[in-house]
Protein backbone atom coordinates (compact mmCIF):
# COMPACT_ATOMS: atom_id res chain seq x y z
CA UNK A 1 0.00 0.00 0.00
CA UNK A 2 2.97 2.33 0.43
CA UNK A 3 3.33 2.43 -3.33
CA UNK A 4 0.25 4.55 -3.57
CA UNK A 5 2.05 7.44 -1.91
CA UNK A 6 4.37 7.64 -4.89
CA UNK A 7 1.61 8.59 -7.32
CA UNK A 8 2.43 11.72 -9.30
CA UNK A 9 0.13 13.55 -11.67
CA UNK A 10 2.41 14.00 -14.72
CA UNK A 11 1.15 12.24 -17.85
CA UNK A 12 4.23 10.20 -18.73
CA UNK A 13 5.15 7.69 -16.10
CA UNK A 14 8.05 5.37 -16.69
CA UNK A 15 8.18 3.51 -13.38
CA UNK A 16 5.91 0.50 -13.17
CA UNK A 17 5.18 1.30 -9.55
CA UNK A 18 3.43 4.54 -10.37
CA UNK A 19 1.55 3.04 -13.31
CA UNK A 20 0.30 0.38 -10.96
CA UNK A 21 -0.69 3.03 -8.41
CA UNK A 22 -2.59 5.09 -10.98
CA UNK A 23 -4.36 2.05 -12.30
CA UNK A 24 -5.28 0.93 -8.81
CA UNK A 25 -6.86 4.35 -8.25
CA UNK A 26 -8.97 3.87 -11.37
CA UNK A 27 -10.08 0.43 -10.19
CA UNK A 28 -11.06 1.93 -6.81
CA UNK A 29 -12.95 4.71 -8.57
CA UNK A 30 -14.90 2.20 -10.66
CA UNK A 31 -15.95 0.07 -7.68
CA UNK A 32 -18.94 2.23 -6.63
CA UNK A 33 -20.42 1.95 -10.14
CA UNK A 34 -19.77 -1.80 -10.22
CA UNK A 35 -21.42 -2.28 -6.82
CA UNK A 36 -24.37 -0.10 -7.80
CA UNK A 37 -24.77 -2.09 -11.02
CA UNK A 38 -24.77 -5.35 -9.09
CA UNK A 39 -27.42 -4.07 -6.67
CA UNK A 40 -29.58 -2.58 -9.42
CA UNK A 41 -29.42 -5.44 -11.91
CA UNK A 42 -28.57 -8.39 -9.71
CA UNK A 43 -26.37 -11.44 -9.88
CA UNK A 44 -26.26 -11.50 -13.69
CA UNK A 45 -24.35 -8.26 -13.84
CA UNK A 46 -21.77 -9.52 -11.33
CA UNK A 47 -21.30 -12.57 -13.56
CA UNK A 48 -20.76 -10.34 -16.61
CA UNK A 49 -18.23 -8.22 -14.70
CA UNK A 50 -16.27 -11.24 -13.45
CA UNK A 51 -16.26 -12.93 -16.86
CA UNK A 52 -15.08 -9.75 -18.53
CA UNK A 53 -12.25 -9.08 -16.06
CA UNK A 54 -11.13 -12.71 -16.07
CA UNK A 55 -11.06 -12.81 -19.86
CA UNK A 56 -9.13 -9.53 -20.08
CA UNK A 57 -6.46 -10.67 -17.62
CA UNK A 58 -6.20 -14.12 -19.19
CA UNK A 59 -5.94 -12.70 -22.73
CA UNK A 60 -3.17 -10.35 -21.67
CA UNK A 61 -1.21 -13.13 -19.98
CA UNK A 62 -1.68 -15.63 -22.81
CA UNK A 63 -0.75 -13.14 -25.54
CA UNK A 64 2.34 -11.92 -23.71
CA UNK A 65 3.45 -15.50 -23.02
CA UNK A 66 2.90 -16.40 -26.68
CA UNK A 67 5.03 -13.53 -28.02
CA UNK A 68 7.59 -14.02 -25.24
CA UNK A 69 7.21 -10.62 -23.66
CA UNK A 70 7.15 -9.91 -19.92
CA UNK A 71 3.67 -10.58 -18.55
CA UNK A 72 2.30 -7.30 -17.19
CA UNK A 73 -1.03 -8.29 -15.68
CA UNK A 74 0.11 -6.88 -12.33
CA UNK A 75 -0.25 -3.31 -13.59
CA UNK A 76 -4.07 -3.59 -13.33
CA UNK A 77 -4.58 -2.12 -16.81
CA UNK A 78 -6.17 -5.32 -18.09
CA UNK A 79 -8.43 -5.38 -15.02
CA UNK A 80 -9.57 -1.84 -15.84
CA UNK A 81 -10.24 -2.72 -19.49
CA UNK A 82 -12.32 -5.74 -18.48
CA UNK A 83 -14.17 -3.79 -15.82
CA UNK A 84 -14.88 -0.82 -18.10
CA UNK A 85 -16.17 -3.03 -20.88
CA UNK A 86 -18.45 -4.95 -18.51
CA UNK A 87 -19.89 -1.72 -17.09
CA UNK A 88 -20.95 -0.63 -20.59
CA UNK A 89 -22.75 -3.89 -21.43
CA UNK A 90 -26.46 -4.63 -20.99
CA UNK A 91 -26.82 -6.77 -17.84
CA UNK A 92 -28.59 -9.71 -19.50
CA UNK A 93 -26.04 -10.43 -22.27
CA UNK A 94 -24.85 -14.04 -22.59
CA UNK A 95 -21.59 -14.55 -20.70
CA UNK A 96 -19.58 -15.28 -23.86
CA UNK A 97 -20.14 -11.68 -25.01
CA UNK A 98 -17.90 -10.09 -22.35
CA UNK A 99 -15.42 -12.96 -22.77
CA UNK A 100 -15.03 -12.33 -26.52
CA UNK A 101 -15.23 -8.57 -26.07
CA UNK A 102 -12.42 -8.44 -23.52
CA UNK A 103 -10.22 -10.73 -25.59
CA UNK A 104 -10.75 -8.40 -28.57
CA UNK A 105 -10.00 -5.34 -26.44
CA UNK A 106 -6.76 -6.75 -25.09
CA UNK A 107 -5.37 -8.51 -28.16
CA UNK A 108 -6.60 -6.55 -31.19
CA UNK A 109 -6.98 -3.06 -29.74
CA UNK A 110 -4.00 -3.07 -27.39
CA UNK A 111 -1.39 -5.84 -27.38
CA UNK A 112 -0.69 -6.06 -31.11
CA UNK A 113 0.47 -2.44 -30.90
CA UNK A 114 2.91 -3.28 -28.14
CA UNK A 115 0.69 -3.10 -25.06
CA UNK A 116 -0.15 -0.35 -22.61
CA UNK A 117 0.87 3.08 -23.86
CA UNK A 118 0.92 2.25 -27.57
CA UNK A 119 -2.75 1.61 -28.32
CA UNK A 120 -4.43 4.46 -30.18
CA UNK A 121 -8.04 3.74 -29.26
CA UNK A 122 -9.50 2.98 -25.86
CA UNK A 123 -9.54 -0.84 -25.84
CA UNK A 124 -12.82 -1.20 -23.94
CA UNK A 125 -14.63 1.16 -26.31
CA UNK A 126 -13.20 -0.48 -29.42
CA UNK A 127 -14.45 -3.80 -28.07
CA UNK A 128 -17.86 -2.31 -27.37
CA UNK A 129 -18.13 -0.95 -30.92
CA UNK A 130 -17.04 -4.37 -32.20
CA UNK A 131 -19.68 -6.14 -30.11
CA UNK A 132 -22.43 -3.77 -31.28
CA UNK A 133 -21.52 -4.50 -34.90
CA UNK A 134 -21.17 -8.23 -34.23
CA UNK A 135 -24.25 -9.01 -32.14
CA UNK A 136 -26.50 -5.95 -32.41
CA UNK A 137 -29.55 -7.70 -30.96
CA UNK A 138 -27.84 -8.71 -27.72
CA UNK A 139 -26.23 -5.30 -27.39
CA UNK A 140 -29.48 -3.37 -27.81
CA UNK A 141 -32.09 -5.69 -26.29
CA UNK A 142 -30.65 -7.54 -23.29
CA UNK A 143 -31.76 -5.00 -20.70
CA UNK A 144 -33.11 -5.73 -17.23
CA UNK A 145 -35.48 -3.68 -15.12
CA UNK A 146 -33.73 -2.27 -12.06
CA UNK A 147 -34.43 -4.02 -8.72
CA UNK A 148 -37.00 -6.44 -10.19
CA UNK A 149 -34.39 -8.01 -12.52
CA UNK A 150 -37.07 -8.72 -15.09
CA UNK A 151 -36.10 -8.92 -18.71
CA UNK A 152 -37.17 -5.93 -20.72
CA UNK A 153 -37.55 -6.11 -24.45
CA UNK A 154 -38.24 -2.46 -25.09
CA UNK A 155 -35.63 0.23 -25.58
CA UNK A 156 -33.92 2.18 -22.80
CA UNK A 157 -35.29 5.58 -21.69
CA UNK A 158 -32.63 7.33 -23.80
CA UNK A 159 -34.38 6.24 -27.00
CA UNK A 160 -37.62 7.88 -25.91
CA UNK A 161 -35.76 10.93 -24.71
CA UNK A 162 -34.03 11.35 -28.08
CA UNK A 163 -37.36 11.16 -29.88
CA UNK A 164 -39.58 13.23 -27.62
CA UNK A 165 -37.33 15.24 -25.30
CA UNK A 166 -39.11 13.64 -22.34
CA UNK A 167 -37.07 11.44 -19.97
CA UNK A 168 -40.08 10.06 -18.08
CA UNK A 169 -37.96 9.69 -14.94
CA UNK A 170 -37.54 11.74 -11.80
CA UNK A 171 -34.22 13.33 -10.92
CA UNK A 172 -33.81 10.94 -7.98
CA UNK A 173 -34.39 7.94 -10.21
CA UNK A 174 -31.73 9.19 -12.60
CA UNK A 175 -29.21 9.95 -9.85
CA UNK A 176 -29.68 6.54 -8.22
CA UNK A 177 -29.70 4.76 -11.55
CA UNK A 178 -33.20 3.31 -11.30
CA UNK A 179 -33.66 2.86 -15.02
CA UNK A 180 -32.81 0.16 -17.57
CA UNK A 181 -29.37 0.60 -19.07
CA UNK A 182 -25.84 -0.75 -19.17
CA UNK A 183 -24.57 -2.24 -15.90
CA UNK A 184 -22.38 0.64 -14.78
CA UNK A 185 -23.80 3.63 -16.64
CA UNK A 186 -27.04 4.24 -14.79
CA UNK A 187 -26.06 5.20 -11.23
CA UNK A 188 -24.90 8.80 -11.66
CA UNK A 189 -24.06 9.25 -7.96
CA UNK A 190 -21.66 6.29 -7.99
CA UNK A 191 -19.99 7.54 -11.16
CA UNK A 192 -19.71 11.06 -9.78
CA UNK A 193 -18.14 9.69 -6.60
CA UNK A 194 -15.54 7.75 -8.59
CA UNK A 195 -14.91 10.61 -10.99
CA UNK A 196 -14.40 13.17 -8.23
CA UNK A 197 -12.04 10.76 -6.47
CA UNK A 198 -9.91 10.59 -9.61
CA UNK A 199 -9.93 14.38 -10.01
CA UNK A 200 -8.99 14.94 -6.36
CA UNK A 201 -6.19 12.35 -6.65
CA UNK A 202 -5.02 14.16 -9.78
CA UNK A 203 -5.37 11.00 -11.82
CA UNK A 204 -7.59 12.60 -14.49
CA UNK A 205 -7.91 16.15 -15.80
CA UNK A 206 -11.28 17.76 -15.06
CA UNK A 207 -11.20 19.51 -18.45
CA UNK A 208 -12.25 16.43 -20.41
CA UNK A 209 -15.42 15.57 -18.43
CA UNK A 210 -16.26 19.26 -18.03
CA UNK A 211 -15.90 19.96 -21.76
CA UNK A 212 -17.76 16.77 -22.64
CA UNK A 213 -20.73 17.02 -20.27
CA UNK A 214 -20.92 20.81 -20.63
CA UNK A 215 -21.15 20.63 -24.41
CA UNK A 216 -23.64 17.78 -24.28
CA UNK A 217 -25.85 19.58 -21.72
CA UNK A 218 -25.76 22.82 -23.68
CA UNK A 219 -26.48 21.08 -26.97
CA UNK A 220 -29.32 19.04 -25.48
CA UNK A 221 -30.82 22.20 -23.99
CA UNK A 222 -30.74 23.91 -27.40
CA UNK A 223 -31.77 21.05 -29.72
CA UNK A 224 -33.12 18.35 -27.39
CA UNK A 225 -36.81 19.13 -27.78
CA UNK A 226 -38.19 18.31 -31.22
CA UNK A 227 -39.76 21.28 -32.95
CA UNK A 228 -38.53 23.83 -30.41
CA UNK A 229 -35.22 25.45 -29.55
CA UNK A 230 -33.81 26.10 -26.06
CA UNK A 231 -36.30 23.83 -24.30
CA UNK A 232 -34.45 20.49 -24.11
CA UNK A 233 -33.71 18.74 -20.82
CA UNK A 234 -30.03 19.51 -20.24
CA UNK A 235 -29.74 17.36 -17.10
CA UNK A 236 -31.50 14.34 -18.56
CA UNK A 237 -29.21 14.63 -21.58
CA UNK A 238 -26.12 14.00 -19.48
CA UNK A 239 -27.74 11.65 -16.92
CA UNK A 240 -29.28 9.25 -19.46
CA UNK A 241 -27.16 6.96 -21.62
CA UNK A 242 -23.45 6.49 -21.15
CA UNK A 243 -22.22 10.08 -21.17
CA UNK A 244 -21.19 10.11 -17.50
CA UNK A 245 -19.13 6.93 -17.51
CA UNK A 246 -17.67 7.90 -20.88
CA UNK A 247 -16.72 11.42 -19.84
CA UNK A 248 -15.04 10.47 -16.55
CA UNK A 249 -13.58 7.05 -17.27
CA UNK A 250 -13.17 6.52 -21.02
CA UNK A 251 -12.36 9.87 -22.57
CA UNK A 252 -9.78 10.55 -19.84
CA UNK A 253 -7.61 7.52 -20.70
CA UNK A 254 -4.03 8.92 -20.72
CA UNK A 255 -2.82 6.99 -23.68
CA UNK A 256 -5.61 7.98 -26.04
CA UNK A 257 -6.31 11.58 -25.01
CA UNK A 258 -4.29 14.75 -25.72
CA UNK A 259 -1.41 15.72 -23.44
CA UNK A 260 -2.03 19.46 -23.40
CA UNK A 261 -4.67 21.12 -21.24
CA UNK A 262 -6.19 22.94 -24.19
CA UNK A 263 -6.12 19.78 -26.24
CA UNK A 264 -8.05 17.98 -23.50
CA UNK A 265 -10.71 20.65 -23.51
CA UNK A 266 -11.04 20.23 -27.31
CA UNK A 267 -11.28 16.47 -26.82
CA UNK A 268 -14.16 16.92 -24.36
CA UNK A 269 -16.00 19.42 -26.53
CA UNK A 270 -15.53 17.33 -29.67
CA UNK A 271 -16.79 14.17 -27.99
CA UNK A 272 -19.79 16.07 -26.61
CA UNK A 273 -20.70 17.42 -30.04
CA UNK A 274 -20.43 14.05 -31.80
CA UNK A 275 -22.46 12.35 -29.06
CA UNK A 276 -25.18 14.96 -29.47
CA UNK A 277 -25.26 14.65 -33.26
CA UNK A 278 -25.45 10.84 -33.21
CA UNK A 279 -28.16 10.86 -30.52
CA UNK A 280 -30.37 13.39 -32.28
CA UNK A 281 -29.76 12.67 -35.96
CA UNK A 282 -27.84 9.40 -36.12
CA UNK A 283 -28.56 5.75 -36.74
CA UNK A 284 -27.76 4.68 -33.18
CA UNK A 285 -29.60 5.68 -30.00
CA UNK A 286 -26.33 6.41 -28.18
CA UNK A 287 -23.18 7.99 -29.56
CA UNK A 288 -20.78 8.02 -26.60
CA UNK A 289 -18.75 5.03 -27.81
CA UNK A 290 -18.24 6.38 -31.32
CA UNK A 291 -17.70 9.97 -30.18
CA UNK A 292 -14.83 9.03 -27.87
CA UNK A 293 -13.36 6.59 -30.40
CA UNK A 294 -13.37 9.31 -33.04
CA UNK A 295 -11.65 11.73 -30.68
CA UNK A 296 -9.08 8.99 -29.91
CA UNK A 297 -8.31 8.89 -33.63
CA UNK A 298 -7.69 12.63 -33.88
CA UNK A 299 -5.74 12.83 -30.61
CA UNK A 300 -2.32 12.64 -32.36
CA UNK A 301 -3.40 15.48 -34.65
CA UNK A 302 -4.62 17.56 -31.69
CA UNK A 303 -1.27 16.99 -29.98
CA UNK A 304 0.50 17.96 -33.17
CA UNK A 305 -1.30 21.25 -33.66
CA UNK A 306 -2.09 22.36 -30.12
CA UNK A 307 1.03 23.71 -28.49
CA UNK A 308 1.09 24.30 -24.77
CA UNK A 309 1.29 28.04 -24.16
CA UNK A 310 0.27 28.21 -20.53
CA UNK A 311 3.35 26.86 -18.87
CA UNK A 312 6.63 28.57 -19.82
CA UNK A 313 5.15 30.03 -22.99
CA UNK A 314 8.15 31.56 -24.80
CA UNK A 315 10.60 28.86 -23.93
CA UNK A 316 8.28 26.06 -24.72
CA UNK A 317 7.36 27.20 -28.19
CA UNK A 318 10.98 27.85 -29.08
CA UNK A 319 12.06 24.48 -27.81
CA UNK A 320 9.40 22.75 -29.87
CA UNK A 321 10.34 24.71 -32.95
CA UNK A 322 13.97 23.75 -32.46
CA UNK A 323 12.90 20.14 -32.09
CA UNK A 324 11.09 20.34 -35.41
CA UNK A 325 7.56 20.55 -34.04
CA UNK A 326 4.78 22.26 -35.91
CA UNK A 327 4.11 25.85 -35.00
CA UNK A 328 0.86 27.05 -36.43
Amino acid sequence: MEDRLLVTPAPHMKSTKTVQGLMLDVVIALLPAAIAGTILFGFRSLLVILASVASAVASEAIYQKAVKRPVSINDFSAVITGLLLALTLPPDVPVWIPVIGSAFAIVIAKQVFGGLGYNFVNPALAARAFLIAAWPLHMTRDWLNPMTYEALSSATPLVGFNATGQAGLTLTQMLLGQRPGSIGETCILALLLGGLYLIVRDVIDYRIPLGYLGTLALGTWIFGKPGALFQGGALSGVFLGGAFIGAFFMATDYVTSPVTQRGRLYMGIGAGLITLVIRLWGGYPEGVTYAILFMNLVTPLIDNYVIPRYYGSGHDAKARKAAGGETR
Binding site: V112, V121, V277, W281, Y284, T289, L293, F294
Partner: peptide, 26 residues
Amino acid sequence: LDGFPLALISTGLMSLAFLGFSGLFA
Protein backbone atom coordinates in the same frame (compact mmCIF):
# COMPACT_ATOMS: atom_id res chain seq x y z
CA LEU B 1 3.07 -7.55 -37.51
CA ASP B 2 5.04 -4.70 -39.05
CA GLY B 3 3.70 -3.14 -42.23
CA PHE B 4 0.46 -4.38 -43.73
CA PRO B 5 -0.87 -6.60 -40.89
CA LEU B 6 -0.78 -3.81 -38.31
CA ALA B 7 -1.91 -1.18 -40.83
CA LEU B 8 -4.95 -3.28 -41.74
CA ILE B 9 -5.87 -4.01 -38.12
CA SER B 10 -5.58 -0.27 -37.38
CA THR B 11 -7.77 0.54 -40.36
CA GLY B 12 -10.32 -1.90 -38.97
CA LEU B 13 -10.29 -0.18 -35.58
CA MET B 14 -10.65 3.22 -37.25
CA SER B 15 -13.57 2.05 -39.33
CA LEU B 16 -15.23 0.78 -36.13
CA ALA B 17 -15.25 4.40 -34.97
CA PHE B 18 -16.68 5.54 -38.32
CA LEU B 19 -19.51 2.99 -38.02
CA GLY B 20 -21.01 5.47 -35.56
CA PHE B 21 -21.81 7.81 -38.42
CA SER B 22 -23.83 5.24 -40.33
CA GLY B 23 -27.46 6.17 -40.53
CA LEU B 24 -26.71 9.82 -39.78
CA PHE B 25 -29.30 12.16 -41.31
CA ALA B 26 -30.87 9.17 -43.05
